[in-house]
């Protein structure tokens, strides 16, 4: 939006500290001088026209969390990490934006497709279901049985991290 004015500027300059608590490398965003190299090399920017990592980092620095965490566009990252390779300031762009998506998830901003794989993951320990046709094919090819991880054990981890609650509500 051109020439937009925020009614009353609500910065949250502590937001960056919160990011750092969850991910130590988030402190690198302090060095961002908004050169735009990340957006310049971002394939998602190119393909979608709706994703701009530079803008998102600036929003995070200023703590404009209301807009930032409620925008569905923040999910359009392919996590190719080209931004990290090319950033002249060593900002871990894509990795920090991933943490920001963690925050967005807690505000219920998460795509259906992602929720679906998380659900599957919590149920079985895998993000893809075992289709009958695939099991048949595996047998035909004489491939070994699929891994059978101890789901009780994994559940304990999901409980400890709070993931279970996050997925199931």
């Amino acid at each position: 939006m051109l020439g937009r004015r925020l009614p009353k500027t609500e910065f949250d300059l502590e937001f960056r500290k919160k990011l750092e608590e969850h991910f130590h490398e988030a402190r690198t965003i302090n060095y961002c001088f908004q050169c735009g190299t990340c957006t310049g090399c971002c394939p998602s920017t190119k393909i979608t026209g709706r994703y701009n990592p530079r803008l998102l980092i600036e929003s995070a620095l200023l703590g404009l969390t209301e807009d930032l965490l409620s925008s569905p566009d923040i999910w359009l990252c392919v996590a190719c990490h080209t931004c990290i390779e090319r950033c002249p300031q060593g900002v871990k762009v894509s990795e920090v934006l991933s943490i920001i998506r963690n925050f967005a998830t807690r505000k219920n901003n998460v795509p259906e497709g992602v929720k679906a794989i998380a659900s599957q993951f919590v149920e079985t320990g895998f993000t893809i279901p075992a289709a009958a046709a695939i099991l048949k094919r595996r047998q035909e090819m004489k491939l070994p049985e699929l891994p059978k991880p101890n789901t009780e054990e994994i559940m304990k981890i999901f409980e400890a991290t709070g993931f279970l609650k996050l997925v199931r509500g």
Binding site: F23, S98, N102, V114, T127, T161, F163
Partner: peptide, 12 residues
């Protein structure tokens, strides 16, 4: 999954 799952919860 380093994309979907990591985007939901880094710690998990």
């Amino acid at each position: 999954d380093p994309i979907g799952i990591r985007n939901m919860d880094y710690l998990t």
